[in-house]
């Protein structure tokens, strides 16, 4: 018996596949199959015929906010991702050199990463609501007389601003951590060498630090864009359906409309966007693997 096991242990491929099979099977059943199954739910009626009724509902029902959802999802991604990337990059540059208390700052900046989007939404509600911190502060300082109303159907722009702030607050941390981890890998001597040769701070930044951070920047951008298309709870808590987004519409289709086929179409749309972004990411990852 022992020698049979030993013989298997001599074959790394067999052993690896045995150890990996539970993972592969589980992912096949719980991720690959549901994705395929979503197409059946979306486009097949009870009697097994192909139907585009769900798509029709999505595009033309008065209950559907599809185009707005698509627009707002893209708009939020386009607003949030660049701002938080810039913010995180500046933070990483400022934190590049070691100093007393740096670790503490890094931990604090990372905190939002551990928080749920539900909590983030509620936290910013506490900041911005009529009796929230910001309004009370501004009134106390005598800058305004009546509270600024961030929420409600009539205040869409300000609601969008609130979502923007909450999203930047919540998800800058992930960009920051990816960039910071990447910066840790940069050999400090490279920068010191540049310093010795008289390169100014700007030159060091522009021609050494940022190019060396490029792989991390790419990774962070792709990941954040991926997550941006999943935006849900922050929006749901701060705006409900006043600001519709793709995931929110999927949620609404299931819980309120009980239209699983419509929800499946939303799932497919999110999956396709994710897959396209994912392909870009995997190409990048391959390159780093090769290196």
């Amino acid at each position: 018996m022992g020698s049979i096991l030993y013989r298997i242990s001599g074959n790394p491929t067999a052993k690896a596949l045995i150890l990996l099979s539970p993972t592969i099977i589980y992912l096949a059943v719980f991720i690959a199959y549901p994705i395929v199954d979503s197409f059946r739910i979306a486009f097949m009626s009870e009697d097994g015929t192909i139907t585009l009724e769900s798509l029709d509902f999505l595009l033309s029902s008065p209950l559907s906010e599809f185009w707005d959802a698509l627009r707002y999802t893209f708009l939020l991604a386009a607003l949030v991702v660049p701002v938080e990337t810039a913010l995180a990059l500046v933070a990483v540059i400022v934190l590049f050199k070691r100093f007393r208390g740096r670790d503490a700052v890094v931990y604090i900046l990372a905190i939002p990463l551990a928080l749920s989007d539900v909590a983030a939404g509620l936290i910013w509600y506490a900041m911005l609501t009529g009796k929230g911190f910001l309004n009370k502060l501004l009134i106390d300082l005598g800058l305004i007389d009546t509270p600024i109303q961030f929420f409600g159907y009539a205040n869409k722009e300000l609601t969008l601003l609130a979502i923007f702030l909450a999203e930047v607050w919540r998800s800058s941390a992930i960009v920051f951590i990816i960039l910071f981890a990447g910066a840790q890998l940069i050999n400090k001597e490279v920068l010191e060498a540049a310093e010795v040769f008289g390169a100014s701070f700007y030159v060091r930044l522009r021609h050494i630090l940022i190019p060396m951070l490029k792989p991390s920047l790419q990774a962070a951008l792709i990941i954040r864009t991926l997550f941006a298309f999943q935006v849900f709870a922050v929006v749901w808590i701060l705006a409900g359906r006043d600001i519709p987004v793709l995931a929110g519409e999927a949620y609404y289709s299931i819980t309120e409309l009980h239209r699983y086929d419509v929800a499946a179409v939303y799932a497919i749309i999110i999956a396709v966007i994710s897959a396209l972004l994912g392909l870009v990411y995997i190409r990048l990852f391959r390159e780093t693997l090769r290196r």
Partner: peptide
């Protein structure tokens, strides 16, 4: 890369 939303309906 597939969010949980994608698998949730099925």
């Amino acid at each position: 890369m597939f969010p949980i939303i994608v698998i949730s309906v099925s």
